[in-house]
């Protein structure tokens, strides 16, 4: 089966004044129809820019090279009507729904605008479809919600409106960019459940972008980890969590505090995450890596296959199984000074 989305050698540079700043370097991955892939990274890793490149929503002046193929079409070459059709079939849901909805228009207008204007769907029919989509994402009394304004809805409700709106164009791929980060945890769980249902019921493929490895693991078959504009590891979500291959993935797994135990000390990663344009030559993670040797700093690392995954570290096979070993034993729920 060929992939629904295929990204190869994608490099993105943004223009900042007279400067070109590289934010993604040679990214490559595939997503099959109905598959969910997690894309995890910290600030500057390039995970949001990857989504923007796929949806063709990069800021003006951005320079893109490489290939993005969606359902056989060359995405980077699309324009006019074809580009509009592409954007309908690739839906994007962002972190802050309030930044993406017109505050002075009713939910009804927002949801049905593209149906009425682009697809010439009559108003009553568009409204009926909008109500059905709201029901699908678990909103009761959709007729009432359609008459309301964005400020009358909570953040979680509004995010469900955004997802329902995305569904109206019958997308085949959903790009979810930190779409639950601003929500309360119970609402987050509910929105995640809705996304998971949609994937199964509609065969909707998903690129789930988040900083939270555990969250990605809960709904995604595979997870890709990015650092400084590059993919450092792609692997089955469970295996990435239990047996990471790249030192950065392992460090991310271990840096998060746990809800089940108090660690005497967290395994913080020294330094700060950098963007592609600030990254040093050689391995970009080397300055923060506890396993780095001189060769890491002088040689670019290639993404190579290892045990059903891909990893960008020439020591991965040697380090395997030892990356999580250095974790201090978690104390059994007792607080240090209790």
């Amino acid at each position: 089966m060929s992939a629904l989305l295929e990204v190869s050698d994608l490099t993105v540079r943004l223009r900042l004044g007279d400067e070109q700043r590289e934010v993604i370097t040679g990214t490559a991955f595939q997503i099959a129809a109905g598959e969910a892939m997690g894309l995890v990274g910290e600030s500057g890793s390039g995970k949001s820019m990857t989504a923007k490149a796929i949806a063709r929503l990069l800021p003006l002046g951005a320079r893109v090279s490489g290939r993005v193929t969606f359902d056989g079409a060359d995405v980077l070459a699309l324009h006019g009507a074809e580009l509009r059709r592409h954007r309908a079939r690739v839906a994007v849901v962002f972190q802050d729904p309030r930044a993406h909805i017109n505050p002075v228009r009713r939910i009804d207008d927002f949801m049905t605008e593209s149906l009425r204007l682009l697809d010439d769907v009559p108003r009553a029919e568009a409204r009926r479809r909008a109500a059905a989509a709201l029901e699908e994402v678990g909103i009761d009394d959709p007729a009432k919600r359609l008459r309301q304004f964005p400020h009358e809805l909570s953040g979680g409700m509004l995010q469900r409106v955004m997802i329902a709106t995305a569904l109206l164009s019958e997308p085949r791929l959903l790009l979810a960019d930190e779409c639950t980060t601003a929500l309360d945890v119970t609402t987050q769980a509910e929105v995640m459940a809705i996304l998971d249902d949609l994937r199964r019921d509609r065969g909707l493929a998903m690129l789930f972008i988040t900083h939270d490895l555990e969250l990605a693991g809960a709904v995604c078959d595979r997870t890709t980890v990015m650092y400084a504009g590059q993919i450092v590891e792609t692997r089955g979500s469970q295996r990435l969590h239990d047996d990471p291959l790249h030192p950065y993935s392992a460090a991310l797994v271990q840096a998060r505090p746990s809800v089940t135990a108090t660690a005497p000390r967290l395994n913080a990663i020294p330094g700060r995450p950098v963007s592609a344009f600030e990254a040093p030559g050689g391995c970009r993670f080397a300055p923060r890596c506890p396993h780095a040797v001189d060769a890491c700093r002088s040689h670019d690392q290639q993404l190579t296959a290892l045990d059903g995954g891909w990893v960008r570290c020439s020591w991965a096979a040697e380090l395997r199984g030892r990356l999580l070993a250095s974790s201090p034993a978690s104390s059994s729920g007792e607080n240090a000074n209790a």
Binding site: A255, R265, L266, A268
Partner: peptide, 11 residues
């Protein structure tokens, strides 16, 4: 804060 930085600040 980013995950790696959050751990630093918590420590």
């Amino acid at each position: 804060l980013d995950v790696s930085i959050q751990a630093q600040v918590l420590n």
